Measured scan of single mutants.
Amino acid sequence: MEVRTIKVFTTVDNINLHTQVVDMSMTYGQQFGPTYLDGADVTKIKPHNSHEGKTFYVLPNDDTLRVEAFEYYHTTDPSFLGRYMSALNHTKKWKYPQVNGLTSIKWADNNCYLATALLTLQQIELKFNPPALQDAYYRARAGEAANFCALILAYCNKTVGELGDVRETMSYLFQHANLDSCKRVLNVVCKTCGQQQTTLKGVEAVMYMGTLSYEQFKKGVQIPCTCGKQATKYLVQQESPFVMMSAPPAQYELKHGTFTCASEYTGNYQCGHYKHITSKETLYCIDGALLTKSSEYKGPITDVFYKENSYTTTIK
């Protein structure tokens, strides 16, 4: 009895394709271990004539594949690729409408935090270190965002349907971005203890939790000093293409032309909904596939993004 075979390709990165001759009487799992086709788990399936010449994702289970996976995804987590594939199996079914010149995501599976993050990423200057993220990001900007969303979920250790947080998501993504040249110098002034300067680099240099107003941050924000008295913390120097200011959701007025974009969060910790506000020729609110415009805006804002380049204080 002759062994019926077909020729397929296996890959971990969709760049390096490895030619395989597979036995049609055995499952993919018996031949390769966990195997995925377009995100779908085909591990328990036997090869079919229609699979001839198709590319299958496999887990990096030998040295060659491990090197290829690390170079593309910059992670050695053995569960990463499987999590990416199972997320992709959902995100490829989502709709990605162009809204006001940006790629958004039609609401499904509690994905409003991903839509808000995706919209924000198209408006701030950011370059990702893992080629996987950078490639998928370019495709997302062009309207094909399924891979990018699935990668975000995998890097953030999230599953489809789980509630997510924009600030946490951005923080994970910033860790995989090139923020080497970003720098922030802060000064804390206390009447009792004097003053202390701190220099922050990388992710810490672009994120701040405690106030939404970048102007206020430049002037000074009140913080408790270690001595128990009130101290003032203010920005001395900022070198970065953008800054992200966050605070627990509270009524906040966004003035046209003073910011790049913002995240609105309605609801409580267990259950809520994100919308995205962007400042173009007027203010726009993007909620999944829905767009509304207004000249002014007041609502429960939790993150505001500002364009920056270089700032030095005039406070002496």
Rank of each mutant, 00 (worst) to 15 (best):
S79H: 10
T11W: 06
N309E: 07
V189K: 11
K218I: 06
Y72F: 10
A231K: 06
N268R: 12
R167G: 02
T258I: 06
V236L: 09
L126P: 09
S310P: 10
D165L: 04
N268V: 07
A205V: 02
V166P: 02
K93S: 10
V67E: 12
E144W: 07
P47W: 05
A115T: 14
T43R: 11
V166C: 07
F56G: 02
K106Q: 13
L65T: 14
T211V: 11
T159Q: 11
Q197R: 10
D23H: 09
Q122S: 03
Y265F: 15
Y214T: 02
G161D: 05
E308V: 13
L283E: 00
Y84W: 02
Y234P: 02
Q98P: 06
Q222Y: 10
K46F: 11
A115L: 04
A142L: 13
Y269I: 13
G161P: 05
G33M: 01
P130F: 03
I223P: 01
P47D: 02
L235Q: 00
Y73G: 03
K46A: 13
A108W: 00
A136P: 02
C156V: 05
K275L: 05
L153T: 06
Y96L: 03
G228T: 02
F305C: 01
D287L: 00
E239L: 10
N129I: 08
V236A: 11
Q230H: 08
Q123T: 06
Y234I: 10
C193T: 02
T282I: 09
A145H: 06
Q20F: 07
C261A: 05
I15F: 15
T314W: 14
C285F: 09
Y138C: 15
L17C: 14
F9L: 11
C285A: 15
G101Q: 06
L118V: 10
L102S: 05
H18C: 08
N157C: 07
S86V: 14
V166I: 06
L59T: 12
G29S: 08
V221E: 06
D109P: 03
T10E: 06
T64S: 12
G288F: 03
C193I: 05
K7A: 12
A142D: 14
E239R: 12
R141V: 11
F259H: 01
M207W: 06
F9S: 09
T211A: 08
V67P: 07
N61K: 11
P60C: 07
Q197Y: 07
L81W: 08
L290F: 11
H276N: 06
W94I: 02
L88D: 03
V206E: 00
K7T: 13
G288Y: 00
N187D: 08
K275I: 07
Y306H: 01
G33D: 04
R4F: 12
Q270T: 11
A117Q: 04
V304D: 04
Y274F: 11
Q251M: 15
Y73D: 05
P34F: 12
V21A: 12
R66H: 09
F305L: 07
L291K: 09
V42L: 12
N147C: 11
V188C: 09
C261N: 03
A154E: 02
K106T: 15
V42A: 11
W107C: 03
T64P: 09
Y57D: 05
K233Y: 06
T75S: 13
M85Q: 09
F259E: 01
M244P: 02
Y265R: 02
H74F: 07
N49G: 10
F242R: 01
S86Q: 15
E204M: 10
K44C: 07
I315D: 15
R139G: 10
A117K: 02
M24E: 11
D77A: 07
D135A: 10
Q122N: 03
V12I: 12
E68P: 04
G202K: 02
R167Q: 00
V99Y: 11
V203P: 12
Q251E: 15
G82P: 13
G161R: 05
N111F: 05
Q175F: 02
E281S: 07
G257F: 02
I286R: 05
F56T: 05
L114Y: 01
Y172E: 05
A40Q: 14
R184I: 03
G210D: 01
S181T: 11
T35K: 06
F32T: 11
L283K: 00
G202I: 02
V203C: 14
H176T: 05
C271P: 03
A140W: 01
I15S: 09
P131D: 02
H256W: 15
N268D: 15
E239T: 11
S279C: 09
F70D: 07
Y84D: 03
D135W: 08
S181F: 14
V160W: 04
L179S: 04
Q251G: 08
G267H: 09
A108C: 14
C225D: 01
Q20S: 13
I277H: 02
I152Q: 03
Y155M: 04
T43H: 14
K92I: 10
